[in-house]
Each structure stands twice: as C-alpha cells, then as structure tokens.
C-alpha cells in the first residue's frame, strides 16, 4: 500500500469521525443528508460482501467493518435518536433514491468485468459511490448557514477521493497489471462533483467567513 492510498483512507476515516463528533457532541444532524448516509451504507454493504469470501489483509477487513458499522450508527442516530432526529432537515432533503440507484444498477449490469452476482454488486457500489454525495451537496446549497463540522466533513470526503486518484496514478506506474478503467472513470466523476464545493470552501476559508454555496 502506498502513502497516497493510506492518506486517502485516513481522510475517509476522519470524515466519519468528524460527522459522528458533530452528531454526538452537538446532538444535531442539521445540514446532513440522510439520503447520502443511507446511500453510503448501501455502497459499503454491497462492496464489502467480499468480507465473507476473500481475505486481503487485517487492515482491509478492519476498515471495511468500521465503515459499515459507523454508517449504520450514523443512520441510527438520524432516524431514531429522540433528540438528533428532530434536527434533521427532512423537508429539504428531497433527493430521490431511485434517480441514483436505478441508473447505477443498470450500468453495473451492462458494464462490468465479470457477470457474477458479487461482481455486479461490487461494480454497482463503485458507480453508486460516485454519485452518493449529490443529495448532501444539494442539501448544502439549500442550507443557509453551513456549520464548520459539516463543511469539514464534506471537505475530508473530497480529499479522500482526490488522494485515491493520486494513488491510482502512482499504482499505474508502479504496478504493471494495474488497469482499472471502470474504477478510474467513476472516481474522476466523483471527485469532479466536489470541485464546485472546494472552490467555495477555500474561498470561505481564505476570507474567514462561513461557507455558503450559491443556489
């Protein structure tokens, strides 16, 4: 494993920590899209099915279990915690699951490396992860005051994707058989979705103002 990949994973892990910190410490999930969180849970569950039949490393297994467990925990807070669930912007979080899930499923059935149950689900998770952030970005555009923890959460997720791209470039040159077009294209699409966010994020940071995305 190279340094970029490790930094990407750590950034991903940190983003989850920041989100859990926000929810637990402030007892609020304001500005967080439950749709995005549930899509991520679906991404992890469909991708990490291989926990049952293939072992890569202890690191991989622990990370996989951690991502599934934290995703479930976040959803539990947002849906069932008496205090937290009242802070959920349900009326604003209107993105339709079907708009994202259906095209990804169709694409995974058509475009995959191998037509097997687990491989199609794995490919589906790659496509779905690319667009799962959309409900969160839409919600943030609608939210007037985006708090720092929410902004940092999304920034860390974006950093994770960016670092993975650097990791792919590195692996492309260091590992002769490393060719992953399907993963790369989805990853670039996913990272591009953050471009707009990062523009306003750095601008707010430079001027020391609160982040606000134009509608």
């Amino acid at each position: 494993m190279n340094l970029f990949r490790l930094a990407g994973d750590m950034s991903h892990l940190l983003s989850v920590c920041v989100l859990l910190l926000k929810i637990r410490a402030t007892k609020s999930c304001r500005g967080i899209s439950l749709k995005t969180q549930e899509l991520y849970a679906l991404v992890f569950v469909t991708r990490y099915l291989d926990l049952f039949y293939s072992y890569i490393s202890l690191y991989n297994s622990i990370m996989k279990v951690t991502f599934i467990a934290t995703a479930v925990s976040i959803i539990r807070y947002m849906r069932f915690d008496k205090v937290v669930k009242q802070t959920y912007d349900k009326e604003q979080d209107t993105f339709r699951y079907a708009f994202l899930v259906a095209p990804c499923l169709v694409l995974a059935l058509v475009l995959n490396h191998r037509f097997t149950f687990t491989e199609v689900l794995w490919t589906f998770s790659i496509y779905l992860e690319a667009v799962a952030i959309l409900p969160q970005l839409v919600l943030m555009q609608r939210t007037q005051n985006i708090d720092n923890l929410t902004a940092n959460y999304v920034a860390l997720l974006g950093a994770y994707r960016g670092l993975y791209i650097v990791n792919w470039i590195y692996r492309y040159f260091t590992e002769p058989h490393y060719r992953q077009w399907l993963v790369w294209i989805s990853g670039v699409v996913q990272t591009a979705l953050y471009a707009d966010f990062f523009y306003f994020y750095t601008k707010a940071w430079k001027h020391n103002t609160r982040l606000q995305l134009p509608a």
């Binding site: 990949r5 994973d9 991903h12 291989d50 293939s54 890569i56 991989n60 990370m63 996989k64 991502f67 490396h113 191998r114 491989e119 794995w122 993975y164 990791n167 590992e175 058989h177 490393y178 060719r179 992953q180 993963v183």
Partner: peptide, 10 residues
Amino acid sequence: QRRQLAHDEL
C-alpha cells in the same frame, strides 16, 4: 489476478 487488484482498495 486482475480481479484481486481491483478489490484490494476500500
């Protein structure tokens, strides 16, 4: 082999 490579990331 190719499959294994694709699946070793998170």
